[in-house]
């Protein structure tokens, strides 16, 4: 039986702007946070404006049980995320959580975490969980330019960070999938964990597949309910069409037929 899900009004503690298109929300629920695992997500209610009718799914960026905080890292894409970007301290937002499965933490070092753009969101929580197991992950972060790299200092606290930017303004120049670690050092890792644009994840799946390294990806298929009933967010797997919101969002690339 899956863990219990909750619907709660969270209070916005902070809304931190990272750059013009990204922000982090720090939220507290009315009671103590339940057990939550890296890779899980929440469904956020954005007040209906006609064009924002359904909830919006976001990965859990970080959990701080000691101060009862749940953090989301959000990219402004359209009306819904724009509305969320305007939330102020003390505002309330309604969440269904925790949803989906989670990354399976390998207990042998070294592991590599790869995030492209806002895909780094779930990797901070994942890195922290590795730290609790005395594993300091390598974290490869990619962005268009230096300005698009999100909260790199936070990741540096938890892992050894590698950087790539498309324009070369920081780290190696090129796409994250072209980083030298993926060319020369890939087989040294016990497992790769990645989240980002689908084209990036597919490329990484291809690279890790060839190198014979285990790889988990976190998918972001468009979804309506987020808890398994509408069957809209499916992805083809070796077991047939599976729901990204329940059997995922994290899949081992060996299972996917995408």
């Amino acid at each position: 039986m899956a863990a219990r899900k909750f619907i709660h009004d969270f209070v916005v503690r902070k809304n931190i702007r990272l750059n013009p298109r990204h922000f982090v929300l720090e939220l507290t629920p009315p009671e103590k946070l339940p057990a939550i695992f890296p890779g899980q997500f929440v469904q956020v209610l954005v007040e209906d404006t006609g064009s924002t009718f359904l909830r919006r799914p976001f990965s859990i960026h970080f959990i701080d049980h000691s101060s009862n905080l749940l953090k989301l890292m959000i990219q402004i894409k359209g009306e819904g995320t724009r509305k969320l970007s305007r939330l102020m301290e003390g505002d309330r937002i309604n969440l269904i959580y925790p949803l989906g499965n989670s990354f399976i933490l390998e207990s042998i070092s070294p592991v590599l975490l790869i995030g492209g753009g806002c895909g780094v969101a779930p990797l901070l929580f994942l890195a922290q969980q590795f730290n609790l197991r005395d594993i300091r992950p390598t974290i490869l972060i990619g962005g268009k330019t230096k300005k698009d790299l999100l909260d790199v200092e936070e990741y540096m606290k938890l892992g050894d960070v590698l950087i790539s930017t498309e324009d070369g303004s920081d780290g190696e120049k090129g796409l994250v999938t072209e980083h030298s670690i993926l060319k020369t050092g890939i087989s040294a890792f016990n497992k790769i964990y990645t989240c980002g644009p689908e084209s990036m994840m597919k490329k990484i799946a291809e690279i890790t597949g060839k190198a014979g390294v285990d790889c988990e990806v976190s998918l972001e298929n468009t979804m309506a309910c987020g808890f398994g009933v509408c069957l809209c967010c499916v992805t083809p797997t070796v077991h047939g069409n599976e729901r990204v919101c329940v059997e995922g969002p994290v899949f081992n690339t060996k299972e996917l037929r995408w």
């Binding site: 064009s51 924002t52 009718f53 979804m223 069957l231 809209c232 967010c233």
Partner: peptide, 20 residues
């Protein structure tokens, strides 16, 4: 039945389309 291929959902003004 495996249903239709993804994408199966489009949000529309005050509603949604599905093709599950």
């Amino acid at each position: 039945r495996e249903g239709n291929p993804y994408p199966r959902m489009a949000e529309t003004p005050s509603g949604m389309l599905n093709s599950v």
